[in-house]
């Protein structure tokens, strides 16, 4: 069968890369949700235990990770809308390359200022 790394060596079109990014972003968000469920559940042990964990969220590495998380959610959402559009209106598939590039442009336009804003708090 095809090995995981071979998914990266096939030279498909922009749709191939957009699918890989969509998967990675989806898995990333899912993994964060698992951590998030655990930390929220800790409130059951009272405010002391819960507050103890907050140091983790204030750590620079975690806050940088949060920027990536926002990027993953943003990309997954915008690309998801593109997939919904082409699924419900197959005639738009004639424009599939342009739609994929449009997702990239919208993502960059929204993510770059957001990332700069979020990282400014990490630097402070």
């Amino acid at each position: 069968m095809v090995k995981p790394l071979e998914y990266l060596t096939y030279r498909g079109g922009p749709g191939h890369w957009s699918w890989i990014l969509h998967r990675l972003a989806g898995v990333g968000v899912f993994l964060f949700l698992l951590i998030h469920i655990v930390d929220i559940a800790l409130i059951g042990w009272g405010p002391k235990v819960f507050n103890k964990l907050l140091f983790l969220y204030r750590a620079p590495a975690f806050r940088t990770g949060e920027v990536l998380l926002v990027g993953a959610v943003l990309y997954h959402a915008i690309n998801g809308i593109r997939i919904c559009i082409i699924d419900f209106w197959p005639e738009t598939m004639a424009l599939h390359r342009k739609l994929t590039y449009a997702v990239g442009i919208i993502f960059v336009a929204l993510f770059i200022p957001t990332a700069i804003y979020m990282l400014s708090f990490v630097v402070k």
Binding site: G13, H16, W19
Partner: peptide, 10 residues
């Protein structure tokens, strides 16, 4: 199908 379009390219 995940609408990846590799089939169209190929």
């Amino acid at each position: 199908c995940r609408t990846i379009f590799n089939c169209v390219e190929a």
